[in-house]
């Protein structure tokens, strides 16, 4: 293959590429297209998106019963256990809100690499949260539940049973998250890092110059 061949080949490929007349895309009239855009825009609330809403709703749903228990239970140790659980929930909700807010999204027409950097920052944060879930989510729940269970005036076997159940739930939650971290976040993080920072982008080093 001589030097001219690839140039001709690329020229031919460029021609093929530019001459294609792609059809497709949803067949909408101008008015319909504008209506679709307006509808999509209306769905976007500037302050509260769907993820924020459901995340907050879930934490409220889980925390409210424990707040009620705190005020209704007469036992001090049980109350401490519930406080630990509520504290853990607050920490978890704070972490998820912080995750959503801490990486500012670039504008839609930012350079491609800037968007990839943003994606990488988000994925790193998700991966980190998933990796450290044991400390900020599983452990406070586990400790809180065990403290409240052992503070209750119930039979020993019931306490053991409830504790084993709690440990099992915590264990499965932790295991599932490790799985997501390993299978989803780590490969995605590596892929983005490879896109942004490929192997040394320098060409072959120049041969040393002869002296003297």
């Amino acid at each position: 293959m001589n030097d001219q061949e690839p140039k001709d080949l690329w020229q031919a490929l460029k021609c093929v590429w530019q001459e294609q007349k792609p059809s497709g895309g949803p067949a909408l009239t101008a008015d319909e297209q504008i209506a679709v855009m307006r509808k999509k825009m209306a769905k976007m609330h500037p302050g509260l998106n769907k993820t924020d809403f459901w995340g907050a709703a879930l934490y409220v749903l889980v925390t409210v019963p424990f707040i009620i228990y705190v005020f209704t239970t007469p036992n001090f140790v049980v109350r401490i256990g519930y406080f630990i659980i509520i504290g853990g929930m607050l920490l978890a909700s704070w972490k998820s809100i912080r995750r959503l807010r801490s990486v500012p999204q670039p504008i839609a027409d930012a350079p491609v690499m800037e968007w990839l950097k943003y994606d990488l920052a988000k994925v790193r944060q998700q991966a980190d949260d998933s990796r450290t879930l044991l400390w900020w989510y599983v452990l406070p729940f586990l400790v809180g539940m065990c403290v409240s269970t052992w503070g209750m005036r119930i039979e020993l076997m019931a306490k053991i049973g409830m504790s084993v159940m709690t440990v099992l739930i915590a264990g499965v939650t932790w295991w599932l998250n490790r799985r997501v971290w390993r299978r989803q976040w780590v490969p995605m993080q590596r892929e983005l890092e490879a896109l942004l920072y490929p192997d040394p982008l320098v060409s072959q080093p120049e041969p040393p110059k002869k002296t003297g």
């Binding site: 497709g24 895309g25 949803p26 297209q33 679709v36 855009m37 999509k40 825009m41 504008i107 839609a108 027409d109």
Partner: peptide
């Protein structure tokens, strides 16, 4: 088709 609409929406927003 989904991607096409998504691109159009980003153009609309931007």
């Amino acid at each position: 088709d989904d991607l096409y609409q998504e691109i159009l929406f980003q153009i609309w927003r931007g």
